[in-house]
């Protein structure tokens, strides 16, 4: 099952994840001005939130990996070596 996590200190409170998620996985904590994961279980693994998040603070684990045919494969290999 997909697990969604937000790195709290990295969240800038833009609400973009709340707006874009098709399955309302996120909710907004007004006093703290941060997004929170409401229900990880509802995530369909579309990764829209993780692409849109300006600080790249949303991570997913345990999602089914689909072969991404339009990626720059040369760089993907290099990415593993990034410190």
């Amino acid at each position: 099952m997909v697990h969604v996590e937000i790195n709290e200190s990295g969240c800038r409170g833009c609400r973009m994840c709340v707006d874009i998620c098709p399955t309302e996985v996120f909710e907004f904590d007004e006093p703290a001005r941060k997004a929170r994961v409401r229900e990880s279980e509802d995530c369909i693994g579309c990764l829209s939130c993780s692409y849109l998040c300006p600080s790249k603070s949303i991570t997913h684990s345990d999602f089914p990996v689909v072969k991404n045919f339009y990626r720059d494969l040369q760089f993907c290999r290099k990415k593993e070596a990034f410190l």
Binding site: N7, S9, G10, R12, P54, K56, S57, L83
Partner: peptide, 10 residues
Amino acid sequence: AQDQAVCAHC
């Protein structure tokens, strides 16, 4: 590899 963007520490 940490791939957060600059906004994360702004």
